[in-house]
Design a protein around this nucleic acid. Structure first.
Lengths: 221, 221
DNA sequence: TGTGCTATCAGACTAAGGTCCGATTTTCAG
DNA sequence: CTGAAAATCGGACCTTAGTCTGATAGCACA
C-alpha cells in the first residue's frame, strides 16, 4: 500500500516500458505498466491512477481509442501521449480531446515529468470537481418535483411571493418548500444555495418567468 | 459595411491566400487577407475579426508568435492554423495555447469551414464572457473599500449581524453598506449578487471568517 | 478652511424570511 | 383498499432585511 501518486504506463515496446518505469519510479511515483490498452482497461485498481502515459500507435486498441474509452469510464484521468512518428492529425485529435501533452520520442526526462505533473494536477482538479457535482446531484435527487421548481426560482432570486404567483401556490406553502430545499440540499445560506444551483446548471423553466420578474421591478416602486 | 462575420487570412504565399479568400468568400464570410502577421496586427479594424486563419511558418513573425501576441491583445480571438510541414511540437504548442484546430495542407474545404465555425462560436462566447466580466469590474471599482469587504461577506452568505461582528461595526452600518453595494453593483437580488461575486472571484479575506461561520452554526441552535 | 467622500450609528417602520404545530387533499404503489 | 409521500394552507411568532431621515466624525484635496 503506497501513498505515492500512481501513474500508468501503456506501451507495447518492452524496452521503452522498462525505461519509462525506471524513470518514473526514480522520480518518486508508483508506476504500473501495461503492454496494451486492453490490459490497462482490465486492471482492477484503475481508479487509483492519476495519470496515464501512453504510446500512440499500438496493436489492438491504439492511444486515441484508449482516450475515447477513458472519456466515458474515467473522465478525470488525464493523459500524456508519446509517439515515435510525427503524426500531426493524431496529435491535434488527442489535444482536442483533452490530452495534457503529446511528446515525440525520444522523450527528455524533464519534459515528461513536467507534463506528468500537469496531468496529475489536472486529474485531481477534475476529480474534485466531479465529486462535488455528484454529491450535489445526489442531494438534488432527494427533492420532490415541487421542491425542485421552488429551488430553481429561489436560486433565480425571486421572492416567495413571486414564486407563489409563478407556481400558483400561497406564499406560506413556498416557505415550507423552501425550508425543505435548504435542508435537503444542506445549504447553510441562500448564497450557498445559489452557488449549488449554478453548479448544477439549474435554471427556472421559463414559462412566464419574465412576467414575474417584471412584477419585481414594478412592485418595488 | 457588411454585417457578415469577418475572418482574417494570414499567409505569406500569395496563391494560397487567394485560394483561401475565394473559398471563404463563397462560404459567405467577409474575408480580409494579410501577407504577414505584422500587417495583420497593424490593421485598423482588427477588433471586428471573429476568426484568424494563419499559416504556421512565415517570414518574420510566425504563427505561434502571432498567437502569443494575440493572447495579450485580443484574448477572445480564436485561431485556426494551417501548415505545410508535419510539425508535431508546433501543433501541440498551438493547441495548448488554445488554437481551435491545426490543419495540414492541402486543406479540404469542408474541414476548414467546420473548424472556422467552431472558432467563430468560441470567439463569440469568449467575447461575451469577457465583456460581462469587464462590466462587472467597472461596477466593482465603484465600491469603496468598506463596501468591498461587505460585498465579499454578503456574497459568502453571512448575516448582517455576523458581518458587523467580523468588521467591527454595527448591524445598522452594514445594512447601509449592503444597500449601497446592491445599488452600485446593479444587483436585483441577493442571488444576483452572489453570482456576480462568483464571476469576479471575490472571496472574503479569511481573517477570522471561520469564527464568524461557527457563530452562525451555534447561534442557529 | 471648506467641500466632498467615507464611514459610522440611531430611530422608526415596513416587508420578507423562517419555524413549529396542525390540518386537509391528492396521488400512487403495494 | 390502505398507508405513505407529496402538496397544500393557516395561525402564531420571531428574526432578518431594507429604507428613510438625520446626524457625527475623520480625512484628503484644493
Amino acid at each position: 500500500m503506497s501513498d505515492k501518486t500512481r501513474i500508468a504506463v501503456i506501451d507495447d515496446d518492452r524496452s521503452i516500458r522498462k525505461s519509462l518505469v525506471r524513470m518514473l519510479s526514480v522520480a518518486g511515483f508508483d508506476v504500473v505498466a501495461f503492454a496494451s490498452a486492453r490490459d490497462f482497461l482490465a486492471a482492477v485498481d484503475i481508479e487509483r491512477v492519476s495519470c496515464a502515459v501512453s504510446d500512440l500507435r499500438m496493436p489492438g486498441v491504439d492511444g486515441l481509442a484508449l482516450q475515447q474509452t477513458l472519456r466515458g469510464r474515467l473522465p478525470h484521468l488525464s493523459m500524456v501521449f508519446i509517439t515515435g512518428h510525427g503524426d500531426v492529425p493524431a496529435s491535434v485529435t488527442a489535444m482536442k480531446a483533452g490530452a495534457v501533452d503529446f511528446l515525440e520520442k525520444p522523450v527528455r526526462s524533464g519534459v515528461l515529468l513536467e507534463a506528468i505533473n500537469r496531468a496529475i494536477e489536472r486529474s485531481r482538479n477534475l476529480l474534485a470537481a466531479s465529486t462535488e457535482i455528484e454529491e450535489l446531484k445526489i442531494r438534488y435527487q432527494r427533492l420532490t418535483p415541487r421542491e425542485g421548481e421552488v429551488f430553481a426560482l429561489v436560486a433565480a432570486g425571486l421572492l416567495n411571493k413571486q414564486i407563489g404567483a409563478e407556481l400558483g401556490a400561497a406564499e406560506k406553502t413556498i416557505k415550507q418548500h423552501r425550508g425543505r430545499v435548504m435542508d435537503k440540499m444542506e445549504a447553510e445560506s441562500l448564497a450557498d444555495l445559489v452557488l449549488m444551483a449554478e453548479r448544477l446548471g439549474i435554471r427556472p423553466a421559463e414559462t412566464d418567468f419574465s412576467r414575474a420578474k417584471g412584477k419585481l421591478i414594478s412592485e418595488a416602486k
